[in-house]
Every structure is written in structure tokens, then in C-alpha cells.
């Protein structure tokens, strides 16, 4: 749940999602779910010449599994906190049996 928790804090921020087929889409992060599916608004395809069919699309839903990278706005990331969150994540029993 670490990255779900993480992405929730980035809602409303501009991100660039790069897909496994090299399509890169910039837009405002609208929402994210546990599968890291992503909804973007005000989207703009980075390489419009290669993907002219995307010109008309204004918002989109991206299945998490097709994502390669998400470029994030660095000032919106608290790296110290993020590292702690990652450390905590590892400490939780693998089975997730919390109480």
C-alpha cells in the first residue's frame, strides 16, 4: 500500500506517465487506486507527431500494469518521509496480519 498512499498525496499535481509502449502522457493526476491505475486530466501527449490520434483526448484512465514510469514533481515529494514509509512497510509482517 506504500505507493498507493504515496500517489494519493500527488493528486492534483502534474505528472508525466510513460507507458510501456513508449507513449508518454502529461496531465494532472486526478486519482489513483490500489492497483496504481491512474486517472489523468488535461492530458497532452509528449510526442504528438507520433500519436496524432491522441490529440482529441482530454482525459484518460491508465491501467496500472501498462505504466513504465511516472515522472513526478520533486518538490511535492517528502523524500525523508518516503524513506521512512518504505522502512515501515518492510517491517509489517509479510502476511499482513496486523492485529
Amino acid at each position: 500500500m506504500l505507493f498507493y498512499s504515496f500517489f494519493k498525496t500527488l493528486v492534483g499535481q502534474p505528472v508525466t506517465v510513460e507507458l510501456k509502449n513508449d507513449l508518454a502522457i502529461t496531465g494532472v493526476l486526478v486519482s489513483v487506486d490500489q492497483f496504481l491505475n491512474i486517472k489523468l486530466d488535461n492530458i497532452k501527449v509528449v510526442d504528438e507527431e507520433r500519436y496524432p490520434h491522441m490529440l482529441a483526448v482530454k482525459n484518460c484512465f491508465i491501467r496500472g500494469s501498462v505504466v513504465r514510469y511516472v515522472q513526478l514533481p520533486a518538490p511535492s515529494v517528502d523524500t525523508a518521509l518516503l524513506q521512512d514509509a518504505a522502512r515501515r512497510e518492510r517491517q509489517q509482517p509479510a502476511a499482513g496480519g496486523r492485529k
Partner: peptide
Amino acid sequence: TDDPYADDFYCQVYT
């Protein structure tokens, strides 16, 4: 859970 941070530590603290 009695620990609201268990699953959502980053988001909770960040917010």
C-alpha cells in the same frame, strides 16, 4: 486497526 498509520503512513503524515 488502532494504528491509522499502518497502511497509509506516508499519506497520513504528509497530509
